[in-house]
Computed example of a mutant assay.
Amino acid sequence: MNTISALCNRFSKLAFGALLGSFLLLPGCGKKQDEQKQMTPALPVMKVQLSPASVSSEYSVRLEGLADAEIRPQVDGMLQAILVREGEKVKKGQPLFRIDDSAYREQYNTALAAQRAAEAQAAVARVNAEKLLPLVENKVIAPVQLTTAKAQEAAARAQAAQAAASARSAAINLDYTVVKAPVAGYIGRIPFRQGNLLTRNQAQALTTVSDVGKMYAVFSISEAGFATFKKVYPGETLQQKIDAVPPVKLTLSDGTVYNHDGKLESISGGFDASTGSIGLRVAFLNPEGFLRSGNSGTVSLSSSYDKVILVPQSATVELQDKVLVTLLTAGNKVAKRVITVAGRSEENYIVSDGLKPGDVIVTAGIEKLQDGMVIKPMPAAPPIQTPNAR
């Protein structure tokens, strides 16, 4: 009995030890399983597909009026009166400044008197020649006397014409003493004051008159951008492609969008040799007069694509001058892939190279992924298709 009891006690101790060991091993097994789960992260993925998109390219612009006329004096003299105010809207031909005209008025009066005297002498010469004509016909005097009289008449007429030209020149100078607006528009800054001495060769203009009823947004694109422009818009000729450009939006320097759309009107005839760019001009109507010459902003040229690959910008990383996505390959392994971005929107990149329809990319948590890592793919939301891309 003692032997049997001893054996039972020993068996009980061994069983208890084994049971205790199994309980001690359980936490270790759970920890390893958790580590394995952490090593295989669950990340969202999406399948690349073709989608329609509208791309908008933005360019910085400088605004110019339909006409920006510098007003300069055509005669020398003292500024006698300023007839307009800065910022005032004026009509074509409206007087802006008046220069002291006393000297020019006397010059005109003198020239006009000389013209009248010369015309009187020409009239006398004509009468003298006419009187000799019957005498020559009746052979009372020699024909040479009539020839001489006609020559004197011609000289008198020439002197009268010269005097008339001098009078007209004096009248023009007198008229220049009132400086008028060459175009309708708005008066710019006036740096001169009454009593200042003006000269026709002075460097500084009296003011400027800007016709802002129609404004031009002027900007440049690169040679590569011009090549893209010709591919994107339909048409057999460059003018047809210009006409195919949709209405252009103007965003002012304060971020507000101008309430009138513009129209691309022209592209300059050649590239600038120093910058390698070519100029474009967009016209905007300005009925309220809100725009002024010298304003700056950005214009957006839109173009539409039927089938392009859209990738969320959050699914990409930038490395130096390259944009990369994380591609899901066989066995749920990941690999970095360089893509070419043709345009962008607020949410998406438009990819022209590096991906094809059917490829699967990781859309989040890609910063710490390395090539060859295994992930657990999860479905992700498709890219947002915004109508305005850049």
Rank of each mutant, 00 (worst) to 15 (best):
residue 2 N to M: 12
residue 3 T to G: 11
residue 6 A to I: 12
residue 8 C to W: 03
residue 12 S to C: 12
residue 16 F to C: 14
residue 18 A to Y: 12
residue 24 L to F: 13
residue 38 Q to C: 07
residue 41 P to N: 04
residue 45 V to N: 01
residue 50 L to W: 06
residue 55 V to L: 15
residue 55 V to M: 09
residue 67 A to W: 06
residue 68 D to H: 14
residue 71 I to L: 05
residue 74 Q to P: 15
residue 74 Q to K: 15
residue 77 G to C: 12
residue 78 M to C: 07
residue 80 Q to Y: 03
residue 90 V to D: 05
residue 99 I to D: 08
residue 101 D to S: 13
residue 104 Y to V: 04
residue 108 Y to T: 11
residue 115 Q to H: 06
residue 116 R to W: 06
residue 120 A to L: 08
residue 121 Q to E: 04
residue 122 A to W: 02
residue 132 L to S: 08
residue 133 L to S: 00
residue 139 K to C: 07
residue 144 V to L: 11
residue 145 Q to Y: 02
residue 149 A to M: 00
residue 156 A to D: 13
residue 158 A to G: 05
residue 159 Q to I: 03
residue 159 Q to K: 13
residue 159 Q to L: 07
residue 161 A to H: 02
residue 166 S to R: 15
residue 174 L to K: 07
residue 175 D to F: 04
residue 177 T to M: 01
residue 182 P to H: 00
residue 183 V to G: 08
residue 185 G to R: 02
residue 188 G to V: 08
residue 190 I to D: 00
residue 195 G to R: 10
residue 199 T to W: 07
residue 206 L to A: 10
residue 213 G to F: 05
residue 217 A to C: 07
residue 223 E to T: 14
residue 224 A to H: 13
residue 229 F to A: 06
residue 231 K to A: 10
residue 233 Y to H: 02
residue 237 T to W: 08
residue 241 K to Y: 07
residue 244 A to R: 07
residue 246 P to F: 00
residue 251 T to S: 01
residue 254 D to T: 07
residue 256 T to Q: 12
residue 263 K to E: 14
residue 265 E to Y: 06
residue 268 S to D: 02
residue 269 G to L: 03
residue 277 S to A: 07
residue 278 I to K: 06
residue 279 G to V: 12
residue 283 A to P: 10
residue 285 L to Q: 15
residue 291 L to P: 03
residue 292 R to I: 04
residue 293 S to P: 11
residue 297 G to T: 08
residue 308 V to T: 10
residue 310 L to C: 03
residue 312 P to D: 09
residue 314 S to D: 09
residue 321 D to K: 14
residue 325 V to S: 00
residue 329 T to N: 14
residue 330 A to M: 12
residue 345 S to R: 11
residue 350 I to L: 04
residue 361 I to H: 00
residue 362 V to L: 01
residue 365 G to R: 13
residue 368 K to D: 10
residue 371 D to M: 06
residue 382 P to L: 01
residue 383 P to W: 00
residue 388 N to L: 09
